[in-house]
């Protein structure tokens, strides 16, 4: 019970300042409960991707604290074991990128077992067996020996999701997973994300995909200029937003 009460992701007072004093995140707090699905919305350049990348330290926060599954890392602390702790967080977080970033020199199957075999030191047979389950789950079993370039964008993103899931992560981060896709391919990716949410995965997604935000997410957060504008359940955000900025933003994407 204790475990369920403590948040899976807890971000406290995160600041991110890029060179030339570009203040992208201005003291952001975020708590995501275990099994919760959170969608972060906001205009481009509002800092939502940077925030997501701060969770697994692809972006180093300038100030603040990140906690994932009980592992806490302070910004700027100087500790020999810190890199190891960052890797521990990364092993527990899966991440999907807008550009998929599959490894082009490996087949689909090799992409999926790369993390388990290289990072988790799993036996190749065991990793392959699990990868085949995952491929079946995303409906791409027959593509296992293809190279990523032979797949459509939607298929590539599904493989990227499977590659993350192979690490058995505690939380999945999605950085605009459908923005690079042709419109007719968005649905297959969102469908996989939806099933993932239903199976109880903790999800933090930066996305403008309306169906996902409205029907799948438990909570929506709106970001603007590195600050939260408003947050709440989808019904409230979409039907009855409090802030003018939220209304403006929704008018653009609806």
């Amino acid at each position: 019970m204790m475990e369920n009460d403590s948040p899976m992701v807890k971000i406290t007072n995160i600041h991110k300042v890029f060179p030339q004093d570009v203040h992208v995140l201005c003291g952001i707090d975020l708590e995501v409960k275990k099994g919760e699905t959170v969608a972060i919305l906001g205009a481009s350049g509002s800092g939502k991707s940077t925030l997501l990348r701060c969770i697994n330290f692809l972006e180093e926060p300038t100030a603040g604290t990140v906690e994932v599954d009980g592992i806490t890392i302070e910004a700027g602390e100087n500790d020999k074991l810190r890199n190891g702790r960052i890797r521990d967080i990364r092993k527990r977080t899966g991440m999907c990128f807008q550009a998929f970033n599959l490894f082009p020199h490996m087949t689909v199957l090799e992409n999926i077992i790369e993390g388990p075999v290289t990072v988790l030191r799993q036996k190749k047979e065991a990793a392959t067996a699990y990868a085949e389950q995952l491929l079946q789950w995303i409906g791409l079993s027959e593509k296992s020996d293809e190279h990523p370039s032979r797949l459509s964008g939607g298929q590539q993103q599904r493989v990227a999701i499977a590659r993350s899931l192979a690490m058995k992560p505690k939380v999945m981060l999605f950085d605009e997973p459908t923005s690079a896709l042709d419109p007719e391919l968005v649905g297959e990716v969102v469908e996989v994300m939806e099933r993932l949410a239903k199976e109880g995965m903790t999800i933090v997604a930066v996305t403008h995909e309306l169906h996902f935000a409205r029907d799948v997410a438990d909570r929506i957060l709106i970001m603007d200029n590195g600050n939260w504008v408003e947050q709440g359940p989808p019904e409230k955000i979409f039907n009855n937003p409090e802030q003018e900025r939220t209304r403006q933003f929704l008018a653009h994407i609806l």
Partner: peptide
């Protein structure tokens, strides 16, 4: 993006260099 994807999986710098 290749380095980022490898990092996100938890690879070390040398693993990323060697494998990816």
């Amino acid at each position: 993006g290749q380095t980022e994807a490898a990092n996100a999986l938890g690879m070390t710098r040398s693993q990323t260099m060697k494998r990816i």
